[in-house]
């Protein structure tokens, strides 16, 4: 999403406060940790490998799955950062009014989409049955660390429609908080790490006398919460963006 700099009269000149940017970043982290596709794929993967292999190998493969997922997020964040930093002729920051309105619209749409489309009947997610079946059956073909890494890497792809705008606004918020390169990179790494925290949580869940049946029950029981809570957070980001512009 690249926007050419507009005339000053059309632009929003007031800088978005660091406090607001921090708020957007925290909300974005919260939403990332409530998106359920990758943790669900990981739970299914971990259940399968711990049934097929020894505990040590299951832990090893799951670590590489998490590394794959982390690499994917870091790569996306890096690409977004490169776009923002290497194209100075385009105005991509949180002080561009047009960009703010577009982002607000996207987050509003995501809020509605999460509320109505994220879960379908019987707790199934928004993705097609064919994709879901592939994600469910793929662990059967995983034998090596590299397979687990690639699976972790691609597991993010179907959910990018919900997570990519979050990554984008997070990078914008981080660049608004601290424009100097070193702390900037640190904040991005911190954000990238926060996105894989749910996977560590799922792993810990399985290692504390819980099994896949417990995970499934929890997931099915709380599907309304997992639908409404991220939807409200998306809405909150949209409201903050619009509010910041109007005020």
């Amino acid at each position: 999403m690249l926007l050419v700099e507009l005339q000053p009269s059309l632009c929003y000149n007031k800088s978005m406060s660091v406090f607001i940017s921090l708020g957007i970043l925290v909300l974005s982290m919260l939403i990332s940790s409530f998106l359920v596709l990758v943790p669900s794929v990981f739970a299914n993967f971990f259940h399968y490998v711990s049934g097929k292999y020894s505990r040590k190998k299951a832990d090893d493969l799951s670590l590489f799955f998490i590394l794959g997922a982390e690499t994917m997020v870091t790569l996306i964040l890096f690409l977004i950062t490169m776009i923002i930093w290497t194209l100075p002729i385009f105005v991509i920051n949180l002080n561009n009014s047009i960009l703010i309105w577009i982002l607000a619209g996207i987050f509003l749409a995501l809020s509605i989409a999460t509320f109505f489309l994220y879960f379908r009947k019987k707790g199934k997610l928004f993705i097609s049955r064919k994709t879901a079946t592939k994600l469910i059956t793929q662990p059967k073909f995983i034998k090596r660390r590299s397979d687990a890494f690639v699976f972790g890497f691609i597991a993010h792809v179907p959910e990018l429609v919900f997570s990519l705008p979050l990554y984008f606004i997070s990078i914008l918020a981080i660049s608004n908080i601290n424009p100097s390169p070193l702390p900037y990179a640190g904040l991005i790494m911190f954000y990238a790490l926060s996105t894989v925290c749910p996977l560590f949580a799922v792993h810990a869940f399985f290692r504390t006398n819980h099994n896949f049946a417990d995970f499934l029950r929890l997931r099915i029981k709380n599907q309304t919460f997992f639908r409404i809570f991220p939807s409200l957070l998306y809405l909150l980001i949209a409201i903050i963006l619009i509010g910041e512009f109007i005020i």
């Binding site: 596709l37 669900s40 794929v41 739970a43 299914n44 259940h47 019987k122 707790g123 199934k124 997610l125 993705i127 879901a132 079946t133 994600l135 469910i136 099994n211 896949f212 049946a213 995970f215 499934l216 029950r217 997931r219 099915i220």
Partner: peptide, 15 residues
């Protein structure tokens, strides 16, 4: 085994 039955029945509802 109720847990095994539950996993068998609901596996594809997870995604």
């Amino acid at each position: 085994h109720s847990d095994l039955a539950y996993v068998y029945k609901n596996r594809d509802t997870i995604i």
